Simulated assay, not measured.
Amino acid sequence: MAGSSSGIVAGLTTAALVTVGVLAYQASANVPAGLGRPHATASPAPGASKAPRDSRNPTALPAGSGTGERVVYSLDDDRVWLVGAGDKVQRTFEVTPSAVDPPPGTYAVTSRSNRVTGSDGVPVEHVVRFADVKGVVVGFSAAVDGSTAEPDPRLRTGGIRESRADGEAMWQFATIGEKVVVIR
């Protein structure tokens, strides 16, 4: 009996290890680029140098800003597009840029906080972080008081400010792993 009992235990242990191995492989295959690293890294986005704009409709999604569900952030236009399935724009809005810009490229949302104090000392909500530029964490946020003041150029801050309503929309849309494409 003792021999068959240890054989059963060994069989169950092997089955458990195989199951854990399969689950670990599946999980690693589904981790978006940039997650699990101490800092998000950029990779060149298609058309990252300067995405063409539709002069008749300046709020139109720029060509060359990627495909699929994503957040598109234009450094030159200080504008964000929340792009859903089928490349359909769900919302677009203006933002106040941070003092530190992330380089154009493709990132992933790495962390989120409901309410914190921003690097500029302002209480913020709906913080969606996606990049690290030389030690400055960059992300979208809304000031709790609704302000969108220009950042102090003497401070190295990474908060891209949006209105509270736009911050709520970003919070609902940009969960951990969501793609963020930064363009010129």
Results as ranks from 00 to 15, higher is better:
Met1His: 08
Met1Gln: 09
Ser5Cys: 07
Ser6Cys: 01
Ser6Lys: 06
Gly7Asp: 08
Ile8Tyr: 06
Val9Phe: 05
Ala10Pro: 11
Gly11Gln: 06
Thr13Ala: 09
Thr13Asn: 10
Ala16Trp: 15
Ala16Phe: 13
Leu17Met: 09
Tyr25Glu: 13
Gln26Ile: 00
Ala27Pro: 12
Val31His: 04
Ala33Leu: 14
Gly34Met: 09
Gly36Pro: 06
Pro44Met: 06
Ala45His: 00
Lys50Glu: 15
Ala51Gly: 01
Ser55His: 13
Ser55Thr: 11
Thr59Ser: 09
Thr59Ala: 13
Pro62Cys: 08
Pro62Phe: 03
Thr67Asp: 00
Gly68His: 02
Glu69Cys: 04
Glu69Arg: 07
Glu69Met: 03
Arg70Leu: 01
Tyr73Thr: 05
Tyr73Gly: 11
Ser74Asn: 02
Ser74Trp: 01
Asp76Gly: 09
Asp78Lys: 10
Gly84Glu: 03
Arg91His: 10
Thr92Pro: 09
Phe93Pro: 00
Phe93Ala: 01
Pro97His: 07
Ser98Val: 00
Ala99Ser: 10
Asp101Cys: 04
Gly105Cys: 11
Thr106Ser: 02
Tyr107Ser: 00
Tyr107Cys: 02
Ala108Met: 00
Thr110Leu: 05
Ser111Asn: 14
Arg112Val: 02
Ser113Ala: 15
Asn114Lys: 12
Val116Glu: 13
Val116Asn: 14
Val116Thr: 08
Pro123Gly: 07
Arg129Ser: 06
Ala131Asp: 08
Asp132Cys: 09
Val133Met: 04
Lys134Met: 09
Val136Met: 11
Gly139Phe: 05
Gly139Thr: 12
Asp145Arg: 02
Asp145Gln: 08
Gly146Gln: 14
Ala149Arg: 11
Ala149Pro: 12
Ala149Glu: 15
Pro153His: 01
Arg161Tyr: 07
Ala169Leu: 03
Gln172Leu: 05
Ala174Trp: 13
Thr175Gln: 14
Ile176Lys: 08
Gly177Pro: 06
Glu178Ile: 07
Arg184Pro: 08
